[in-house]
Amino acid sequence: MPSFLKEFFNRNGTGMGLTILGLVLFWTIGLIILPQLSMLDFSFRPNLPPPEIGGPKDVYTLENYKYLIYGPEGGSQDYNTVDLRVFFRTLVAAVCVTIFNLILCYPIAYYLGQSKGSHIRIFAIMLIIPYWINEILRAFALRIIFGETGVLNTLFVGLGIWDTPFDFIRNDIALYAGLGYAYILLMIFPIYNVIESLDRNQIEAARDLGAPWWRIHWRVVIPYAKPGISSGCTMVFMLSAGALAAPQILGGPSSLWFTQLIYQQFNDNNDWPQGAAYAVVLLVTCILFVLAMMRLFKVNMGDIGK
């Protein structure tokens, strides 16, 4: 027995040690690692009816990945433009949502982090309440507002600002607003946490030296808050790229989200391996993208998840 394990059991006792170790192994291996590997493996297999699984036809193949790039065999187009477009649109839109959220939330996080008083707690509650409410209901609320006869259209048309209702949904505005809305808290909290620990004197000192407010932010606050900002951005990006409810409810009829394609593969086409392949592509792309961004902005992995 390695000395680490021996010490572990000495410290925790055999019974407790086994319980802890068992739970941790179940979680890490049984729930995290093996399912992901299993999905990866599955994505390289053909879609077979259950009796043929494990049979002679069950061989590894790249078909599912080829499908994403080239489309169905003998299809009319050289590339699977529909799915690829959805894929890139999802990524770009997720980046946009992230940037939008950052711009929206940074001032709030800064304000909350730097001011004191009991109203801050009330603000915090007001921030958290929408987050406690079901994702579907949040999307539903926005749907009421952005609908063709929703509050905004009634208001603007009623005031005579527009003469026809504007279709927020078809133009994806509702979707972006909804995605941004859903992840506000995830952007604010990491930034708030970091900024709260920023010594006010640093800002005062910079102000004393005559720095204008934007320079103070650019040179002092933002560099300091970088771990929080990157943490928030990573979470918002990953979650918006992986969002399903908001696109389903708020998305325009002609614009799909990549997760919806995955959903269709599973639930409508009943092609699990294909869906798994798409899921792998989504996961890997998102991770690579986040890692690249972290590289670009020189952020450490350890800062994430604080």
Binding site: I32, P35, Q36, M235, M238, W272, L283
Partner: peptide, 30 residues
């Protein structure tokens, strides 16, 4: 390494977690 593994599920899209759970336990079941 351990920390990365146990923190990763927060960042993995929920859709992916759902699919991998489904696929994995279906396989175990079989």
């Amino acid at each position: 390494t351990y920390y990365t593994i146990i923190i990763a599920p927060i960042l993995i899209p929920g859709v992916v977690l759902g699919i991998s759970t489904l696929v994995f336990w279906d396989r175990i079941n079989r």
